[in-house]
Design a protein around this nucleic acid. Structure first.
Length: 868
RNA sequence: GCGAGAGUGGCGGAAUUGGCAGACGCGCCAGACUUAGGAUCUGGUGGGCAACCAUGGGGGUUCGAGUCCCCCCUCUCGCACCA
């Protein structure tokens, strides 16, 4: 008997069959409902990690399930293959980035195939290939024509270590998101995409994305940061036409303004500060700048609020009062107008500031029933209330006053209502080599000229030097830089910046629909059929940047007439992280498993090793697991099954080798169930009541019922809830039930309808398990005599009659405590149940001599008697 | 500080609509087969001798609460001087 579960053979064989037969090739077919399933494509870093395994296993379960359910599934895969690591490899190991990247892609593609993932590899794309990035450039030029791409000099975040510009989103608490070194400010000419033009639509869209997790939507709303308010001009005293513009969301408090605060970077400080205060203001501003630069991570919020009087005075346009203008360290130049009208009574920051510098506090909002006294107030009152000390507006509620005072300000030409967004335009320039060249040529006569569409792509030159000295290698590539002006033919120079790699990933899902199109990024027909992505799956780390940019691109492309979708991703699933416990030596820090001896000692110093917290797998914590090793030892099916069984997709997954063993054991159990009974199973066809007659009560009927219940549960769990862990557990239960039936006696499955019911159950196990463990199930399916592979086999439907029970166990409670159970016919009436209860000996001790005050009866479920 | 999510056996996790808490798996215990077992199969396994007690803690609603309401604690994530 050498028919053991040989995962290696089975998996390579079926992977070849799927590939040879083009099992997962997708074609447009308007007669079949389409389903676009997409997982975030990986950066080709060299090897896949457990996070990929999890992400792609989740996707593959859905792809296979939906295909079996009659959907025309498109399930593509590709490579987000521009980016820094390739360049670092070039600097450190002298490998050209293109070579390094392509080799990584080849290796990782093999790894993905080893997992048995059902991708349409005909649609594979790599963003670093010219036939992809030429369309990046094409779109860039379109954006330029539409006024959605522009260049401006601006202060940017500069990472000295990575020698590049970072987007705001790539800066976390003043540190570079990749290398964690302190980010500096630099002034550079940068290309920007005008995402702010779409701020309102991007925000409004968050209310329509009902298939997205609420927290992702919240993060995007926060990021867009819309606020409704007024810009108000405060005229400067002793000048004819100078004014300072402030932005406020609280026009209702304008009668309470007692001073104004400017950001230290505010340009008017230079021109308006009187000579008498100039030296003092300059010293203060310089001090604050220094402090900000050295504050480091999270330092800003800990900085003490301070400021000084600039000597400038201006008029409150509504009250006509003269107020002092301060410069304050907590006012942000980046937000609003960089100037704030200060209302100490109703803003906590202004309150603290006013207390510190003895500035008057005027109360203009009265909360209901409380009189505020500026002398005794200990904090600002920021809530709603009724206006007071506000001239004609006294007595209005805050809400009404906002509207009324805004109108009044507009009537007096003192300002206008406006919306303000925290969202900034998207800076896309990167001083890097391994990215998509920005298709612009600079000519002394004609200025910045876009490269004509027929000259695309602007190819990345491969004869460049990597010195690692900072700056872009493209700047040194003279063949690349020196060119002709497309407009006048004169000598000109190319833009040497490349695009942020988030540009690449902002439309790749559209390219998948027309991966071989030569004349356009994609065709309207293909996109029209396949888009939007029905289900997108990926990590929560992309909640803001990638997903917001992709939404922006989709809308911009729509407005260029290239496609008809408003939102690219209908449903979004953010999977949890893959974690594992860490091991730590007090002396040597985190340890690899091989650095821990059998006795739990550090191999370097013999100190006892502490098993630390369960944390996200990362190289620095030395708690990673290479999926290749797991696949080699246990097989792809086991690896997939484990990563789907140990936790629901959206939660974190804790890796455990014992759990992997458990999954492997289960597959072995399924294997033996089918192969060990193959003669019996082959001799029959699945049970049907017409052919085999109705089943009498007993083990066979129970097994038939369990089979159909499992079909129902797995169908719902995969299709509606994405709870693969419970789907798998219910298949395990069915397997247990089959074994238990076999245990009850050989005769049961050998005679009468036995073989048919057994076959039906075994087929259900194989088919229901197939999205999770596709190889072993294909193998067993063919051994069961199937002529059609599982991926072409329809999903199982369940028989309502088989599930319907004739009898149920009724729980009988006394005062809410379970005291007995009774098997009753479905639909038994309350009176009949009460009759039975009276005869139940387990209940007499509770009921006898007591008064039954109340009886609650939930048919077929529970009977609760309240007694005294 | 604001917002979101979570807290259930020794562990990962079930419980879909307020109705038997702990499915399924891991681990552990016992047994069977066996030269052997890290294979396989079978049984047991929240705590407590029991009545009973148990879903982070405390109140409440209800015949009945892991599930609903109020207060509090802890953890994770996101945002954070946003005017």
């Amino acid at each position: 008997m050498d028919d053991r579960y040989d995962h290696k053979n089975i998996e390579t064989r079926w992977q070849k069959i799927w590939e040879d037969q083009g099992a997962f090739t997708a074609h447009v077919d308007s007669t079949v409902p389409k389903y676009y399933l997409l997982e975030m494509f990986p950066y080709p870093s060299g090897r896949i990690h457990m996070g990929h395994v999890r992400n792609y296993s989740i996707g593959d379960v859905l792809a296979r399930f939906l295909k079996m359910n009659g959907k025309n599934v498109i399930h593509p895969m590709g490579w987000d293959s521009f980016g820094l690591p390739a360049e670092n490899a070039a600097i450190e190991r002298n490998v050209p980035p293109a070579k390094w990247t392509r080799e990584n892609i080849d290796y990782m593609r093999t790894q993905l195939k080893q997992l048995g993932l059902g991708y349409d590899w005909n649609r594979e794309i790599a963003t670093c290939e010219p036939d992809y990035y030429r369309w990046n450039q094409w779109i860039f030029i379109k954006l330029l024509e539409k006024g959605l791409a522009y260049k401006k000099r601006s202060s940017v975040n500069w990472c000295p270590h990575c020698a590049t510009v970072l987007a705001n989103e790539q800066v976390e608490e003043c540190l570079c998101w990749r290398c964690s070194c302190t980010v500096e400010k630099r002034d550079l000419e940068q290309w920007f995409f005008k995402i702010t033009s779409y701020a309102e639509e991007l925000l409004a869209g968050t209310d329509k994305l009902t298939g997205w997790p609420e927290r992702v939507l919240t993060m995007q709303r926060n990021w867009i940061g819309k606020s409704i308010g007024v810009e108000v001009n405060f005229n400067v005293v002793d000048t004819a036409d100078k004014s300072i513009k402030v932005f406020t969301t609280r026009p209702d408090t304008i009668y309470g303004v007692t001073f104004m605060s400017l950001a230290p970077e505010h340009p008017l400080l230079r021109t308006l500060t009187p000579d008498s205060h100039l030296a003092e203001v300059r010293a203060f501003v310089e001090g604050v700048m220094k402090e900000k630069a050295s504050a480091g991570p999270g330092g800003l919020d800990k900085m003490e609020k301070k400021g000084i009087d600039t000597g400038i005075r201006c008029f409150n346009p509504i009250t006509g009062e003269t107020i002092p203008v301060y410069v304050a360290n907590f006012v942000l130049m980046e937000y609003g107008t960089g100037a704030v009208m200060a209302v100490p009574a109703h803003d906590q920051r202004d309150f603290e500031f006013a207390k510190k510098y003895d500035i008057p506090i005027t109360v203009v909002i009265t909360p209901s029933g409380v009189e505020l006294d500026p002398k005794t107030m200990e904090e600002a009152y920021t809530g709603e209330g009724t206006l007071t000390n506000s001239g004609p507006f006294d007595g209005l509620t805050t809400d009404n006053a906002k509207k009324a005072i805004t109108n009044y300000i507009e009537e007096k030409w003192a300002g206008e209502a406006c919306l303000n967004y925290r969202l900034r335009d998207w800076g896309v320039s990167r001083q890097r080599y391994w990215g998509c060249p920005i298709p612009v040529i600079y000519c002394d006569k004609c200025g910045a000229v876009p490269v004509p569409a027929e000259d695309l792509p602007v190819l990345l030159p491969d004869n460049v030097m990597f010195t690692g000295k900072g700056g872009s290698p493209l700047e040194e590539a003279e063949d690349f830089v020196n060119t002709e002006c497309p407009a006048c033919g004169g000598p000109a120079k190319r833009e040497t910046d490349t695009m942020d790699t988030f540009v690449d990933s902002s439309w790749y899902f559209l390219r998948y629909t027309s991966p071989h199109e030569m004349k356009k990024p994609f065709t309207k027909e293909d996109a029209g059929y396949w888009m939007p992505v029905d289900q997108y799956i990926g990590g929560i780390e992309h909640a803001v940047m990638h997903l917001l940019y992709a939404r922006f691109f989709t809308k911009a492309l729509r407005d260029m007439g290239l496609c008809d979708v408003d939102e690219p991703f209908k449903n979004l699933l953010t999977q949890g992280m893959v974690c594992k416990e860490t091991q730590k030596c007090p002396e040597h820090g985190f340890l690899l498993p091989e650095e821990v001896s059998d006795g739990g000692k550090c191999v370097k110093c013999s100190a006892p090793v502490v098993t630390g917290a369960v944390e996200k797998m990362s190289k620095s914590k030395k708690n990673t697991v290479d999926p290749s090793g797991i696949i080699a030892r246990y097989g792809a099916d086991t690896t997939r099954l484990f990563s789907l069984f140990a936790a629901p997709p959206e939660r974190d997954l804790e890796f455990s080798i014992d759990g992997v063993e458990g999954s492997y054991r289960f597959l072995g159990r399924v294997w033996r169930l089918v192969t060990g009974n193959i003669d019996n199973l082959s001799a029959s066809e699945p049970y049907s009541s017409e052919k085999h007659g109705a089943l009498e009560s007993g083990p066979l009927k129970d097994l038939h019922c369990a089979t159909h219940r499992t079909i129902e549960k797995v169908t719902v769990d995969i299709g509606r809830r994405f709870h693969f862990n419970t789907a798998i557990s219910s298949v395990m239960e069915l397997v247990n039930a089959i074994y238990a039936t076999l245990q009850k006696g050989e005769g049961i499955v050998n005679s009468g309808a036995g073989p048919a019911v057994f076959r039906e159950a075994a087929e259900a196990v194989v088919l229901l398990l197939s999205p999770f463990a596709p190889h072993i199930t294909e193998e067993l399916w063919s051994r069961l005599g199937a002529t059609q592979p599982i991926y072409e086999t329809p999903w199982l439907t369940f028989d309502r009659d088989a599930i319907a029970r004739q009898e149920v166990t009724l729980v009988i409670q006394i005062n809410g405590k379970v005291r007995s159970r009774a098997v009753i016919a479905v639909g038994t009436k309350k009176e009949e149940v009460l009759e039975m209860v009276k005869k139940d000996s387990r209940l007499t001790q509770w009921i006898e001599g007591r008064e039954i005050k109340k009886v609650i009866y939930v048919p077929d479920k529970i009977l609760n008697m309240v007694i005294k």
